[in-house]
Computed example of a mutant assay.
Amino acid sequence: MTENRRFLLRRRPDGDPVRDDFELVSAPVPSPPPGGFVMRNHYCSIDPAMRGWMDDEPSYMPPIALDDPVRATTVGVVHASDNDDYAVGQWVMGLNAIEEYSVVTPGHFTAPVDVEAVDSPTRFLTAMGAVSLTAYFGMTDVAKPKAGETLCVTGAAGAVGSVVGQIGKIHGCRVIGIAGGAEKCRRLTEDYSFDVAIDYRGKDIEELRAEIAQAAPDGLDMVFENVGSPIMEAEVFNLATHARIVLCGLISEYNAEERVGLRNLWQLIVHQATIHGFLIADYAPRFPEGGAKIMEWVREGKLRIDEDVQEGIENSYDTFMRLFSGANEGKQILKLP
């Protein structure tokens, strides 16, 4: 190939992203920089966090610069190299962008991968990628589940939430999942072994509060939060004493013009609860440990990880927006054939 198609951020979204916020352009295939290499991206991880990177606001990562390609974790093959540690043809993953070819300077997020050890290279974006590792370390290191405790997961049918709930079951917990729609709730109980599935659609906070109370009469020992208010408020009203909240995401507020936040924060005092803002980046040195354990559970049939693979860089916008409509069924991935 002689061209590099790139999905650029042309303007910062105001609320829901629209097509005109982005542009697909073609450029020459780049050459490797000194000490670096050029990677041919085969698969891109499409994640809710990308929406936050599009805003010009302080965050844990710098915003995507206008006219730059949209940042994404990718897995692919070394196309050209000026680095002896990364030979042409070698499979690699790293934090790059939605583009067919990325210029890579090896660093914190770049690592070679062994595709012979997995059934698909996409596993490095799912089972052995940041999504499953977020669930693994968020549960084992922060929530610290104990057998007999009750865990509530929001965004439970999503890529992170579905793994969180299954890890809770592996540790002997009662698991309640909150998701949108009958089909997603069916998947929670039938595919992921959740004990209870609650459909939030069409319900106000009082109805959700009552359903959670019925599912967890002794309160929630753990909450793994991916969505935010008002669902989170209903959970907080149902905490057990010394409950632990892992605050992983707030997808309900990413496109909002005004962010509501948690209006019943005082309940954390009432229940002597803790809330922990969680980012996976701190655990990068331990990724091999987490990935090995996750693949062990997958091989043992204890953990199911679904992938939703859409194809074609020309479908980047539609694939990204599937995250916010709830159309994705599993970890959202974009294949660049």
Rank of each mutant, 00 (worst) to 15 (best):
V163N: 03
A117H: 13
V38C: 03
T122R: 09
N264Y: 01
W53N: 00
T110K: 05
N41I: 02
P48I: 05
I275M: 02
V92A: 06
M39I: 05
H242D: 14
P121C: 15
P217C: 14
K184I: 09
G277E: 00
F324Q: 08
V113L: 09
T154N: 07
T73V: 11
S316C: 11
F7P: 00
S162W: 04
P285K: 12
R174E: 04
G76Y: 00
N226D: 10
V160D: 03
E3Q: 15
V236L: 06
T189P: 04
E3K: 15
M54V: 10
V118Y: 06
G219W: 01
M321W: 00
V75C: 12
E225M: 08
L265C: 00
E3G: 15
A327Q: 13
F137G: 00
I178K: 10
V260Y: 02
A182V: 15
P217E: 08
R259W: 06
R259M: 12
Y200I: 03
S45D: 11
T140Q: 11
H276M: 05
D318C: 10
P34C: 10
A156W: 02
C185M: 03
P33K: 14
E289F: 15
V246E: 01
V309W: 03
D47G: 01
T74A: 12
D141S: 06
L133H: 05
D308Q: 04
G138E: 01
